[in-house]
Simulated scan of single mutants.
Amino acid sequence: MSTSTSTSTTRVALVTGGSGGIGRAVVERLAADGFAVAVHYAGNQATAQALAAEIEAAGGQAIAVGGDVADEVAMAAVLDATEAAFGGIDVVVNTAGIMVLGPVATFDLADLDRMHRTNVRGAFVVAQQAARRVRPGGAIIGFSTSQTRLRHPGYAPYAASKAAVEAITLVLARELRGKDITVNAVAPGPTATPLFLDGKDEQTISTLAGLAPLERLGTPDDVAETVAFLAGPARWVNGQIIYVNGGIA
């Protein structure tokens, strides 16, 4: 379906990091729920464009939009493009993030700065733009991690960046009083994505899969289910961190 057929009754979602992993599952789920979706990418333009084309071929509405989440000018342009294509924005989901692991004592501070630029500054920029643009009745959904509770060795730099996301989420929900916009964050546990699996051997993956009482890793679809709830019917869930981890923590 062409984006030109979008109407004022169509709900519109922007998903950052939407070209792969959890982001892709979120895009596909929201499109299946009837959203017009802007698929954001930072570097993988071809993948984002292909996903948008798949959604359109299936009768949905989608565009691909690119930009650095930590660059406020680039992200303002992303939201401009989304509004121009679909007439407004109702939901912003910020799945974009990077993960670098290592112990505090030996962690490379250049890696810390790079990760926090995307995960902290990027989360703030996206939240700031969303707070200015999302229409009444909409939702802003950030991404944290269950590692803020699990506290596994090696995760301190990453968990610290996601703790910042939680702080932004909880305060912004209260700052938007009277706007009829919910602000929540999803905190996945071990989830079988390329980001999570990278650098882990089979034994480590098996151990992590066994931590949950449900005895498996999460899937991107598991997480997308929760995002869809927050993006749609969950109008009385606000200012919350939702742990999606099979009961690990």
Rank of each mutant, 00 (worst) to 15 (best):
Phe124Ala: 14
Gly87Glu: 09
Thr193Phe: 09
Gln203Ala: 15
Gly87Leu: 08
Ala167Ile: 10
Val171Asp: 13
Ala131His: 10
His152Arg: 13
Met115Thr: 08
Ile98Ala: 07
Pro188Leu: 11
Met115Gln: 15
Arg151Asn: 12
Ala84Lys: 13
Gln147Cys: 06
Phe196Asp: 05
Leu109Gln: 14
Arg151Gln: 12
Leu172Ala: 11
Leu217Glu: 08
Gly137Arg: 05
Leu170Phe: 07
Leu112Tyr: 15
Phe124Gln: 13
Ala173Gly: 05
Leu112Trp: 15
Thr219Gln: 09
Val120Thr: 11
Ala209Ile: 12
Val186Phe: 08
Gly97Ala: 13
Leu208His: 04
Ile89Cys: 12
Leu195Arg: 12
Leu150Cys: 06
Leu170Thr: 14
Phe107Trp: 02
Ala187Glu: 07
Ala139Tyr: 04
Asp80Cys: 01
Leu112His: 10
Leu176Thr: 06
Glu202Phe: 00
Asp111Ser: 14
Ala127Met: 14
Gly189Val: 03
Phe107Arg: 07
Pro153Gln: 06
Phe196Cys: 04
Leu176Asn: 01
Phe124Lys: 03
Gly189Met: 03
Asp113Ile: 01
Thr148Tyr: 00
Phe143Thr: 11
Arg114Pro: 00
Ala167Lys: 11
Arg114Tyr: 06
Ala212Leu: 06
Pro103Ala: 09
Pro213Met: 06
Ala96Arg: 01
Ser146Cys: 08
Phe143Val: 11
Ala192His: 04
Arg151Met: 13
Ala84Ile: 03
Asp201Tyr: 02
Arg117Trp: 01
Arg216Ser: 05
Gly154Glu: 10
Leu211Glu: 14
Pro153Thr: 07
Val92Leu: 14
Glu202Gln: 15
Val100Met: 10
Ala127Pro: 07
Glu83Ala: 14
